[in-house]
Design a protein around this nucleic acid. Structure first.
Length: 564
DNA sequence: CTGGGGATGGGGCCC
DNA sequence: GGGGCCCCATCCCCA
């Protein structure tokens, strides 16, 4: 969706995905519209092909090859999965339809194996996390870890005991979105040791192989179609607990579908079903994998703007599809997927993925804190810590909440504030921004464009406050604004009201009704007075008008046009 | 909830 | 091209 398109208004419904999943789960439980039956050792589970294809790399590719073979995606199928324990299969189905994996700890290993066989990477990662295993350890059937049976909800698993908490979460998110797309580079999704081999293979692969030519793709598809079931039948690597097969039984009518029009040009990269956003949300550009040096340079030019010079030879991660800039950086990045930590502290044994991080860590043992504060005796391990610390001395709080105008010294604290529910104050219409407002020395007034689409959403989801400017901006067709969102339940009515209004008036007209509409929603009025100068013109936090003012500019322009 | 320190991943520069 | 070093952004944890 592009809110920037003229005349379009985008209204996200954040609950939609949950409701959709819930509906699908209801259908599954009732057997309604189920077009796929999974069997495991006599147990039968009705499900939906589309859901399984969405959640499982195995099914995705299986159905994908069917599609490519003109067999179509409809009909009814039975898939025999004796290599996946019934309980594990049940848990994985529950996960697919609820985004929550509930499994007794004693069955975690079965679930892990099932997840790996079916290519449900995020579940496999979570299981590994719980089992305390590195990727690839699973094949070591000799490892036995007994844990008392207890219910564990993976979605809510608190991995606070694990140092790599954030990374794992990120990894899960990334892989959940993108790993499936890696099917052609990793043609053995069912292999329990596939994940580490991905990395190592990719590291051995020349960069040119990271972008598959159509021929390569077709060849790999063929390999998958022909070879992968074999690999499943022969887990060989200790995968199948019973040495069983994954047996595909076709008993549905074949519906001939023409092969995808762009099959020959279809790349296994982001073009499929994921946006081209990096882990941090950076838009990777409209091209897929850069296949030539010039293309790579072009991508670099669009992605890396922070430094003076472009990075050298961006490479695409075969796992998460992210473009990694800089020569020699891909192996470093790959370790974030493999969990490999080759750098160990000789003093305490802690391991790190990167040598430079180990070096910083060693400062803890040596007592070295190379970043001293010039104003106080404080010293810091990281330069950025010093930077943060210096803001304390300066008193600068350049990061201000656009809604409650609370100022923060650190950007991440503002982000936390905005993502949380602490901002209950709504202050909207302010006097027009004057030139004095950019008084924090930053061109953007302390504002950073949210690079992560999720961040965009959460930014708008911030608090229960309804941010009218977003509507106006989107409706006015200026287009730079993110999509609309009314995050809280209390705003749902407003959302519905907006829908109704928009449907009657049309988005263009809606913009013209800004004042009326907002007044009707009771979102303007008394606040206007108190926000005229909430902090004093020269207060440290008077750096204001980030997102709000930016869109307010547009609103003002719109108003002028309306008056004219 | 906020302030502050630490951890971690990505990018740029350089050798 | 690989890797070291550094800076930066972001996240997590704790008080």
């Amino acid at each position: 969706m592009s809110p920037g398109e003229d005349g379009l208004i985008g209204i996200p419904f954040p609950e939609h995905s949950n409701e959709l999943l819930s509906q699908l789960n209801d259908q599954r439980r009732s057997g309604h519209l189920c077009d796929l039956t999974l069997t495991s050792r006599g147990a039968r589970y009705h499900t939906h092909r589309s859901v399984m294809a969405a959640v499982s790399l195995y099914f995705r590719r299986l159905f994908g090859t069917e599609e490519a073979g003109g067999e179509g995606g409809g009909g009814f199928s039975v898939c025999q999965l004796d290599c996946v324990a019934p309980d594990a299969l049940d848990a994985l189905l529950e996960f697919a339809y609820t985004a929550t994996l509930t499994v007794p700890s004693s069955g975690m290993r079965d679930v892990l194996q099932g997840a790996q066989l079916l290519g449900i990477q995020c579940v496999a990662d979570a299981c590994r996390e719980i089992l305390g295993e590195e990727a690839g350890d699973v094949a070591e059937e000799t490892r036995v870890q007994y844990t008392p049976p207890k219910k564990v909800t993976v979605e809510e698993v608190d991995v606070e005991r694990v140092s790599r908490r954030k990374n794992d979460r990120k990894k899960v998110r990334r892989i959940g979105l993108n790993w499936i797309n890696h099917s052609l580079v990793n043609p053995s999704p069912a292999s329990p040791v596939s994940q580490p081999s991905i990395a190592s293979d990719s590291l051995r692969s020349p960069p040119s192989t990271q972008s598959l030519s159509p021929d390569q793709e077709l060849r790999l598809k063929s390999e998958w179609q022909n070879g992968d079931p074999e690999s499943v039948k022969e887990p060989g690597r200790g995968a199948a607990p019973n040495g069983g097969h994954v047996h595909w039984i076709h008993d549905r009518p074949r519906i001939a579908h023409p092969p995808p029009v762009a099959a020959a040009n279809h790349k296994p990269s982001q073009n499929d079903d994921t946006e081209r956003f990096g882990e941090d949300g950076t838009f990777m550009g409209s091209t897929s994998v850069p296949t030539s040096a010039s293309e790579r340079v072009a991508v670099t030019a669009t992605v890396g703007e922070g430094r003076k010079r472009k990075s050298q030879t961006p490479q695409q991660c075969p796992v998460c599809q992210k473009i990694i800039h800089g020569a020699g950086k891909l192996p470093r990045h790959m370790r974030t997927h493999t969990g490999e930590k080759p750098f160990q502290c000789s003093a305490c044994g802690v391991r790190f993925t990167r040598n430079d991080k180990l070096k910083i860590h060693m400062r803890k043992h040596t007592g070295e804190r190379p970043y001293p504060c010039p104003h106080c005796p404080a010293r810091f391990l990281h330069s950025y810590d010093l930077k943060n610390h210096l803001s304390l001395h300066s008193g600068a709080r350049p990061f201000e909440c656009p809604l409650c105008h609370k100022a923060f010294a650190r950007e991440d604290h503002l982000q936390r504030h905005r993502k949380g529910h602490s901002c209950l104050e709504l202050r909207t219409r302010r006097s027009r921004r004057g030139p004095e407002l950019m008084d924090n020395g930053r061109e953007d007034g302390g504002r950073r464009e949210p690079s992560d689409p999720l961040e965009v959403v959460t930014s708008q989801a911030h608090t229960s406050a309804f941010h009218p400017h977003m509507i106006l901006d989107a409706a006015s067709g200026h287009g730079v604004g993110p999509p609309l969102m009314f995050p809280g339940d209390m705003d749902r009515g407003r959302s519905l009201a907006l829908q109704a209004l928009s449907s009657q008036l049309g988005p263009h007209r809606l913009a013209g009704y800004s004042e009326l509409f907002l007044r009707g929603l009771g979102l303007r009025g008394s606040r206007e007075v108190q926000v005229e100068d909430p902090g004093g013109t020269h207060s440290p936090g008077r750096l204001r008008e980030h997102w709000a003012d930016e869109v307010e500019e547009k609103v003002g322009d719109e108003d002028v046009e309306e008056e004219e």
